[in-house]
Design a protein around this nucleic acid. Structure first.
Lengths: 413, 413
DNA sequence: GGCTTTTTTTCGAGCCTCAAAAAAATAGTG
DNA sequence: CACTATTTTTTTGAGGCTCGAAAAAAAGCC
């Protein structure tokens, strides 16, 4: 609130601005950057000269389609892929995957692993995560020193400082400080990110037209999660990763939720809830994990004929609709992306969902609310982790106060 | 996202910082300001010299209790009350009040008026608002030129740009662009603020210890409103004032709400809802306005004996509790201030409210959530409007780019 | 080849902040 | 009362940063 802007901050921030403009735009010329940032050409010129000299940016002649114009051709600026690398770790139900990504955002190596997360003891789960990272870091093709950041994504609740997993549906274990464990083990700064938040980050990069300032990413899978972007920034709770849309209350005292409470949205719209309802199992029955194939079969049956399956999706849509309605009462309507296996059954969910929203405060503009679907969440989570790690590097490469790197530069004419 | 920091912004922002530090701290010395802002003494000295010379700040020797120390005594800096003035207009049910407030935040004049907002035609309602402002501005004791800002507060929904009232329970009229009307009429920049948002702003100034970064102000009155502060900043929706806590869904298809929909929190916890329930009137009955005195009598009766009155408050508490639970699922638990006439009956509401919260995701720390009550909302709303207007002036007095005022300063030795 | 157009770099000027030193103002002390 | 210690405030010179204007560079066009 009351922290002054120091003189050195200025350059630091404007450097960040230039890097961010390049990451966003692909291969912008200096002139384009000057236009988008509002800074003068001379400033951009000075900053980009520094950045090139430090090996962060590179000049690339190939401005491609713009080469047909009159005057001096623009010189595209691009991120130097070798400037750094980041590592992403995504841990989901029975599945662990790691990727090494260069500074320009290209995947240079990856590894995936099946494992039984639900029954693994603590040491083993942590051990597997560290081992897979170690294997990637020992890859002879990789310059270990260039790996500047690890971002780990996980289903469940993380703390607001992105340090630890507090709770997750993929394991009975709680409070695992993955970020600290990774940092200690490998000496590389790390964060622990919530899966749905990373989905939102990825969507923002994938389709900045649609997902710019305000939007919602909802994961429809075993559980119901949400990533929320408001005013262009990821929204997180004050203590946790926040945005636990799935545990808003749909019906007080209602169906039993995986979290042990009753009446949560998830207790009607999570895979297990749809399954429970379609199979005529009691709402008080303990949640069970349902495979993706079973869910697809359920959806197929619901599409063929009226019956308990279709009714289950209808109830899921209703729960999601009233939940979204309450959410929209708080933040006003915004574009929604439905992600995960049940997003593939959104055709079964949508009618009831829209009908419910229309009965809520958000319903004033219910027709104008648009939904997009993406059945596969894992690529999104990985992309989000990658971008999160890369933007961290973007803002870490120019160190605070003192000159950026060890002290290499600045002795040329 | 990608707007660069220009060189002149620096001074502008640091000036704002100094002014804000003075407004917050009362009479800080230059040294204290340097400490809180993190800027150097010389910078603070230069900026405060400018500000004093421009008549924005004044030196006040009376640093009072700190005069007993050794070295050179501190010189307190204070806001110059005559630097500017602002005007607040608060329109609530059957009541209109205006106050003139000097730059230091002291009320210098006020006027109040009873009127029948529910049945007034559009022209008349607007006319009364403009007339009461005109009377205050024509006060011979007031230098009209010094009035730099008008902030108007109203119950209901305003747009996210603080320009217009979109909907209000105090009148059947909708979409009145009060901010534009005031600006056109008086040539003074104006805003139209939501009442609950202003309550939150006022609480932040009244008790910054408790209400700092994250808290919730809930109005328990005819309707249920909320002002929400997250990460130190007022939270507003993307299109409207947002934070329509009262219209989150408590029971899908449930009791009839004043907004015409069913099952909103307000339909169980608004004055009319408590009254309806206590009197055994159907949940489908149209909401009626209940006077404060009637509500106090109802609460008194509920305190004496078990019965439908007590049950009505219990149901209100349950609705508020589940609503807060859903809210806490999204933003994590935070301190809550209950404001308005039914806040005086919070003793009747609290047990059921806590019981409900305990059944929700927010309930993990339900004991630690603390509630504060404040039965009278109008002073809070006025204070909030005043602070909003004043902080606007704080950041407008130093113009963009060019030197602050006409060009007076800077020809002294 | 000379001219036009557009991009990029260079250069001097103007500000801003900072650190250190100087000045100011008071309380203690003998 | 003179002098010292202490703390706050102002002054001063240095170093950086951005900006605007002008120069340089690198094409296409005739």
């Amino acid at each position: 609130m009351s922290v002054g802007i120091r003189h050195d901050d200025l350059r630091r921030r404007n450097r960040a601005m230039v890097i961010s403009a390049v990451r966003r735009a692909g291969q912008p010329s200096r002139t384009e950057i000057a236009a988008t940032t509002g800074l003068s050409h001379s400033t951009i010129s000075a900053i980009s000269a520094d950045l090139i000299q430090e090996g962060i940016l590179t000049e690339s002649k190939a401005s491609g389609p713009t080469a047909l114009k009159r005057g001096r051709p623009q010189i595209g600026l691009a991120l130097n892929p070798e400037a750094a690398a980041v590592l992403t770790v995504v841990l989901s139900l029975n599945f662990l995957s790691v990727a090494v990504i260069d500074y320009a955002g290209q995947v240079v190596a990856e590894e995936q692993l099946r494992l039984d997360t639900l029954i693994m003891p603590r040491d083993e789960l942590i051990g597997e995560c560290l081992a897979i990272v170690r294997r990637r870091l020992q890859d002879p093709d990789l310059d270990v020193g260039s790996v500047a950041r690890i971002a780990m994504g996980i289903q469940g609740i993380t703390d607001s400082h992105s340090r630890a997993m507090l709770w997750s549906p993929i394991t009975p274990l709680t409070d695992i400080p993955f970020a600290d464990l990774l940092e200690t083990e490998f000496g590389i700064p790390a964060t622990m990110e919530n899966d749905c938040n990373m989905m939102a980050v990825a969507l923002q990069w994938r389709d900045p037209e649609r997902y710019r300032d305000d939007f919602i990413a909802i994961l429809l899978s075993h559980g119901i999660g949400m990533g929320l972007v408001l005013k262009g920034a990821l929204f997180t709770g004050t203590h946790s990763s926040g945005g636990e849309f799935g545990h808003m209350i749909h019906r007080p005292g209602g169906a039993l939720c995986r979290c042990g409470r009753r009446g949560c949205v998830e207790a009607y719209a999570g895979n297990y809830a749809i399954w429970r309802s379609a199979m005529g199992i009691s709402e008080d029955a303990a949640p069970t994990d349902v495979g993706d194939a079973d869910m697809r079969a359920l959806a197929a049956k619901a599409r063929i004929e009226e019956g308990p399956e279709r009714e289950a999706y209808r109830r899921a849509g209703e729960a999601l609709g009233f939940g979204l309605g309450s959410l929209f009462a708080l933040i006003d309507p915004a574009p929604v992306a439905m992600v995960g296996v049940s997003a593939a059954a959104f055709d079964l969910i949508e009618p009831a969902l829209r009908k419910a929203i229309a009965q809520t405060a958000g319903g004033q503009h219910s027709e104008s609310i648009s939904f997009d679907t993406e059945p596969n969440e894992l690529p999104l989570i990985r992309e989000g982790c990658a971008m999160r790690a890369l933007t961290f590097v973007d803002q870490e490469i120019f160190a605070p106060a003192v000159q950026t790197r060890g002290g290499a530069g600045k002795n040329v004419a």
